[in-house]
């Protein structure tokens, strides 16, 4: 390597490191501040100390969070809602994509165009009609040993799950991946006596690990970060997930340390999930890039 080249490499590293810190800054600030007393957060605010774990460190903020809110309960709700939706979503979205990419049926093209068109409609655009809809939908329930229709979908966990199971973007991701798997596999399996569902289950799914990992991560993040919809559809404590739970800390006496502690705590699962799947995720994104 010539000196010139080495200088260039060094330059690039500096730029990348700089950008890295820039993006890392809010995260570090949040985590570090969650361990600081309220006063220290503000005195450190305009120096580098803001993102360094220095000075007096304490767990008081976390104590406060657990005392004031039912964060454990919200957390469990979020886990159930997110986990359930992601699992159902992987199945439903990949199955539709399979049917679109590998089977032949009337109206297939139309459905595919509809899926693609749906990708550009944001939640905000449909959220009000959706709310009206779910408020009218009855739930099934047991009463005195009989199946009855009761109440509405409001204030439940399933109202936070079912509307988000099918997702046009994830269907499209699956579709693109499946489309590139040679048809010979399906035909060989068909001759082996496999039904379409068995082809999906035994051939296509096992060959599609990377796209399942990618969609699982993305869907997890979407679901974990749900805010607008739970605020609208859930007023009760019982079904509340973590994100709207942060609201109770904004009041007459806002304590930023506790807000940071709460935020840090609920960010944790996202980081864990990402680290578990990160390798496959990155690989599949890189692969997608090459295929263009």
């Amino acid at each position: 390597m010539t000196a010139n080249k080495r200088l260039k490499t060094l330059g690039w590293y500096l730029v990348l490191a700089g950008l890295g810190y820039l993006f890392l800054f809010p995260l570090l600030f949040m985590i570090v501040s969650s361990f600081k007393p309220e006063s220290a957060i503000f005195t450190d605010l305009y120096s580098l100390r803001a993102i360094l774990p220095v000075g007096e460190l304490t767990l008081d903020n976390y104590q406060g969070v657990f005392d004031k809110s039912r964060i454990g309960h919200y957390f469990l709700n979020s886990l159930l809602i997110t986990g359930g939706t992601v699992v159902m979503g992987l199945f439903v979205n990949s199955l539709l994509a399979f049917s679109l990419s590998r089977l032949e049926w009337r109206g297939q093209k139309l459905i595919l165009s509809a899926v693609i068109a749906l990708m550009i409609i944001p939640l905000e655009a449909v959220v009000v009609p959706m709310l009206l809809l779910v408020s009218q939908l009855p739930s099934l329930g047991w009463e005195e040993g009989r199946l009855v229709l009761e109440g509405s979908w409001m204030n439940t966990r399933h109202v936070q799950m079912l509307p988000f199971v099918a997702n046009a973007f994830f269907i499209f991701l699956f579709y693109q991946f499946f489309r590139d798997i040679p048809k010979d596999f399906d035909e060989a399996a068909k001759l082996d006596g496999a039904s379409p569902f068995q082809i999906y289950r035994h051939i296509i799914v096992p060959m599609s690990g990377p796209v399942f990992a990618t969609v699982a991560i993305l869907h997890f993040m979407v679901m974990w970060n749900q805010y607008l919809w739970p605020i609208m559809a859930v007023q009760s404590e019982a079904a509340r997930p973590v994100m709207p739970g942060i609201q109770i800390f904004f009041g007459r006496e806002t304590k930023w340390g506790e807000i940071f502690a709460y935020a840090s705590f609920i960010t944790l699962p996202v980081l864990v999930v990402f680290m578990i799947f990160q390798k496959r995720f990155v690989r599949s994104l890189a692969g997608a890039g090459i295929k263009g």
Binding site: P182, D184, E187, A188, K190, L191, D192, G193, P206
Partner: peptide, 30 residues
């Protein structure tokens, strides 16, 4: 599958996630 025919493809179409044993046994398993 019910015609009593079996086909060898130009691309072989061996299932990449299965062992040779599983590949060969897949039809019988189905």
């Amino acid at each position: 599958a019910q015609r009593g025919v079996a086909m060898v493809f130009q691309s072989y179409a061996l299932y990449p996630h299965m062992t040779v044993r599983e590949n060969m046994g897949f039809g019988l398993r189905m």
